[in-house]
Design a protein around this nucleic acid. Structure first.
Length: 561
RNA sequence: GUCCCAGUAGCUCAGUAGGAUAGAGCGGUCCCCUCCUAAGGGACAGGCCAGGGGUUCGAAUCCUCUCUGGGACACCA
């Protein structure tokens, strides 16, 4: 609808240019906005305000001329000039009816678009190292990342979900040592406990499983415990496989799937790290100092140069990161979104600098990052403290068990990811209108419930008679509901371009609210057959949009609650 | 010290490319209801958008400085 109005304005502008009211070289930026206040019409444009200066005219006069030059359209009932020179548009019944028809015809594809045109996007998210169960921070990453995938998909992108993990570094070594210590019966309080050992109770389970000779299988690997507590290498493999399986179960419980599990160790095994380093040296961006090899990241906006290869010969962590991203680029991902905790912020500049230094024609701002801030959990009005060190741990799975998958996903994705999130367990659990997930899902279930009632009354409804009856929808609340439904495709688009899943959540809450209000004030199953059919049709359209939006959040749309 | 994020109603947060009187939920106060299954519905109160300066027709939104909170700044990953 916005495009329709923008088109009308555009042709009015052409007329004004032709008759000399506007200079020929104006470059109009036509904006059509949703109005907050319905007395300002359904849509509004500030075009006259922005063009008043080049037209050497005052905005209201220009607006009048523009309105006079607008072509006739069935979509509008009238226009109005208001305030300093806004043009307000009131759309017609024909227009809202055709919007409803579109929704009903497109059903689950309503709101989707083809902006991505099948181009490849990779979303890397969670990427937790296999050193422990997933906690709520990972959960936020999983929820936001998965929603981003769904949103990109809805915008026509070809999405690959990728999970990257470090299976070789120092912390895996610590993990192996910790498990070995447990295998030998040590506890964290013993003097010989590894210095940076992991203290959580899950290490005990892991050690016991290894000593039993269990076989663990995860999405991307499998390993059998050798029962030999002296074999650190076997313990390491087993521990990684074991914790990967645990994480898989967590993710499964959260309905998050990945297409690719990428092992950091493979970068070394396949020589990718080495080749990357050689390229950087060849390109002249490195130098030796103090026995270490440095990368001149300051050439690319970093505030100091970074060590690539330490004195002891090992690479610093960002080197495999650069190799990894080169690999992503070579796999053809024009767009890469890395969803990470905000504590990874400092790597961004380094990775991008490293990529630029490869001279591989990688765009400057590539890849894209979506960072999320911390999550604090509240229960009974008090903060639930999480101490990884002491091993007291609120895992993602605990949370899912306690509040359910839908609520967990919704709460973790419904806030803008770069602000801190307070997760209120009591609210997430509550079965009332205070709980936004419940509220939205209930709106969906409510439509379904109306149809069950209809069947009980031995009445029926079908799409064609419903569409034919739409002209019975005369109420302002009905028209507003339709206009809100019409905003949905735009929300899907904005959520993708801003990489902000929470926009979907906010939209759905508003829509659900409007529908509940409407439902409470107007009876749907009225005696007048035409009106009943029309209202049922509107309800079906609301149901489609709610279901489509909930799907983008990965939250179910129940028929009954 | 440098960098990033945030600072909007008592609380949790929105605010969509700068736009017309700043929005929602909870909590508070006051009504109504028991009507398509929903412990429900409605109304009111509540704000110098952290603060100063700037840009312009117009700023919560952009620029700049200051203050406060969180995070990041290793030859750790």
């Amino acid at each position: 609808m916005k495009q329709v109005i923008a088109g009308l304005i555009d042709s009015a502008l052409k007329t004004l240019i032709e008759n000399g009211t506007l200079p020929e070289d104006v470059q109009p930026n036509i904006m059509v906005e949703n109005t907050r206040d319905k007395s300002h019409g359904d849509y509004a444009s500030n075009i006259a305000l922005t063009l008043a200066k080049p037209a050497r005219s005052n905005p209201r006069q220009l607006a009048e001329k523009l309105v006079a030059a607008l072509p006739q359209s069935d979509n509008l009932t009238r226009t109005e000039i208001a305030g300093p020179g806004f043009i307000n548009f009131f759309i017609s019944e024909a227009s809202t009816n055709s919007l409803l028809t579109t929704i009903l015809d497109q059903k689950e594809s309503y709101g989707r678009n083809n902006d991505g045109a099948g181009r490849k996007v990779q979303v890397e998210f969670v990427s937790a190292n296999p050193t422990g169960p997933l906690h709520i921070g990972h959960g936020r990453g999983a929820a936001v990342g998965d929603c981003l995938c769904r949103i990109m998909d809805a915008n026509g992108w070809d999405v690959t979900r990728e999970f990257y993990y470090n299976d070789a570094g120092q912390q895996i070594n610590n993990l192996a040592l910790s498990v070995q210590a447990r295998c030998k019966g040590l506890t964290p309080d013993d003097a010989s406990w590894p210095e940076d050992g992991y203290r959580g109770d899950y290490i005990i389970d892991l050690a016991e499983s290894f000593m039993r000779g269990d076989t663990v299988k995860s999405e991307d690997q499998s390993f059998t415990g050798t029962k030999n507590s002296a074999d650190l290498e076997a313990i390491r493999h087993f521990a990684v496989a074991y914790l990967r399986r645990e994480q898989d179960l967590d993710l499964k419980a959260f309905a998050v799937d990945f297409d690719v599990y990428f092992l950091e160790s493979s970068l070394y095994e396949e020589g990718k790290v080495e080749r990357t380093v050689q390229t950087l040296i060849k390109n002249g961006y490195t130098y030796e100092d103090g026995g270490a090899l440095w990368l001149r990241t300051t050439d690319f906006g970093d505030d100091k140069d970074r060590v690539m290869r330490k004195k002891d010969g090992g690479y610093t962590y960002f080197v495999p990161d650069v190799a990894y991203h080169l690999d992503k680029w070579q796999r053809g991902f024009e767009c890469v979104l890395n969803e990470q905790g905000a504590d990874h912020h400092s790597t961004i500049t380094r990775v991008r600098a490293g990529l630029q230094a490869l001279n591989a024609d990688i765009p400057k701002g590539w890849p894209d990052y979506v960072l999320h801030q911390m999550v604090t959990v509240m229960r009974g009005g008090e903060e639930v403290k999480i101490s990884k060190r002491a091993g007291s741990y609120l895992t993602l799975r605990d949370l899912i068990d306690e509040v359910g998958r839908d609520a967990t996903r919704y709460f973790l994705a419904a806030r803008k990811s770069d602000s801190h999130l307070t997760f209120d367990i009591d609210l997430a659990r509550s079965q009332s209108a205070d709980n936004p997930v419940y509220y939205i899902q209930y709106a969906h279930a409510r439509v379904c419930s109306i149809f069950r009632k209809l069947a009980e009354n031995n009445l029926d409804w079908d799409l064609e008679t419903g569409k034919a009856a739409l002209s019975c929808l005369e109420l302002e609340s009905e028209k507003n509901l339709v206009i809100n439904l019409g905003r949905y495709p735009e929300v899907v688009k904005n959520a993708a371009s801003a990489r902000e899943p929470h926009q979907i959540a906010n939209y759905l809450r508003d829509l659900a609210g409007d529908f509940h209000t409407y439902y409470n004030s107007e009876k749907t199953l009225v005696d007048d057959e035409n009106l009943r059919n029309a209202r049922l049709t509107l309800a079906v359209a609301v149901r489609h949009v709610l279901a489509n939006g909930l799907d983008l959040l990965g939250v179910t749309a129940p028929e009954q609650m």
